[in-house]
Design a protein around this nucleic acid. Structure first.
Lengths: 190, 190
DNA sequence: TAATTTAGCTAACAATCGTTAGCTTTGCGC
DNA sequence: GCGCAAAGCTAACGATTGTTAGCTAAATTA
């Protein structure tokens, strides 16, 4: 029941502003004003603006990597794993809407090692995702489709889910999970 | 066979840089360097950085609005219209990849009247799109689905098509059109 | 050829940026 | 109540930003 640390509060506010105006267009003074303080005071809790973005992105990316790991190791068939992946996206999106939006829009502003690390995580994740999707096709669970394009389409929809959720914030999580599964998994007849 | 005006050249280069680094992270000096000139010289051809973004966005938005108008007025049934809309996105994306990417990522940096105008166009477009999609469902061409979510999913995929196309630049336009139609239109059995 | 427009340049501006230095206040453990 | 760490403040820095002023060279037109 402990309160969020001051640093976590700053990160939450920063995520909201980064999402609304973009990372580069959000100044430290903007963040400070939203926290009711002066910009230099922020530096008692964080070390730089860059670090703010890096920690926000890496933390969310790790959530996806961890979720993927659990799905891969679960005793499920490939179609069930795909379902679980879709639900994973829905859950993380609902719980961390602002930070998830940064994952699609603001990662370009990472620099140096953080950019490399992030891209490595992204590549790993997409490779795993594709493996599961292709297993679905091979095992006959899905319509014959261009696997690359299908994955691209599914991930595109999941990436933009945060914006849909923001316009429909009262949707039930379980409902949304089920609707997304039904929408995104192109099952064969029946 | 006339060459692009200097202003058009600048806009093309700006679109490429805005896409790669983002509007706010691209300086006039960046654009100038890419054009092999000095930043102040740009102002012999354009009036401001803002105007550059506004004209790029509005011009592409008009392409979509115009395409939508033609589709709406064409003597086609609703399913054929939906197909035509998908092909419209494919065509514009292939022909103006960089500018299309700004449509999804950089419109947040519009200000004042331009922001209002842009959002009005976007709302109109999505309303028309939804009308055609719902006609498809009512006429029984599509599986019963949550129309809002279905439209959201289709538009998400089409919005990110530019990034897929950039990784697969050698794809044939007609092929891509047909694959996208097959992928995005959830036809009933068969 | 003279005149005028086109297209570039350098220098410099005011504003804003992220960040640092150095100081004061607050709140808690002893 | 004292000491100390945590958390705030003001002032100010160097860098970068979009943009203007004023000039020059080249190209076009008369």
């Amino acid at each position: 029941m402990e309160k969020l640390s001051r640093k976590e509060q700053i990160k939450t506010v920063a995520a909201r502003l980064f999402r609304k105006r973009g990372f580069k267009a959000t100044s430290m003074r903007d963040i400070a004003k939203a926290m009711d303080m002066e910009a230099p005071s922020l530096y008692n809790h964080i070390s730089s603006k860059r670090q703010l973005l890096e920690e926000l992105l890496m933390s969310i990316a790790q959530s996806f990597i961890l979720g993927m790991k659990e799905v891969k190791e679960a005793p499920l068939n490939s179609l069930e794993k795909l379902e679980r992946l879709i639900k994973l996206h829905v859950d993380i999106t609902i719980d961390h809407t602002d930070a998830v939006s940064l994952l699609t829009n603001e990662w370009v502003h990472l620099e140096g090692g953080a950019a490399l690390d992030f891209n490595a995580l992204k590549d790993d994740y997409e490779k795993d995702f594709k493996g599961i999707l292709m297993a679905c096709i091979k095992e006959g669970h899905l319509k014959e489709v261009n696997a690359d394009l299908a994955m691209f389409s599914i991930l595109s929809t999941l990436r933009w889910l945060y914006s849909w959720y923001s316009k429909n914030p009262n949707v039930n999580k379980i409902d949304l999970e089920q609707q997304m599964v039904k929408l995104l998994i192109p099952t064969r007849n029946e």
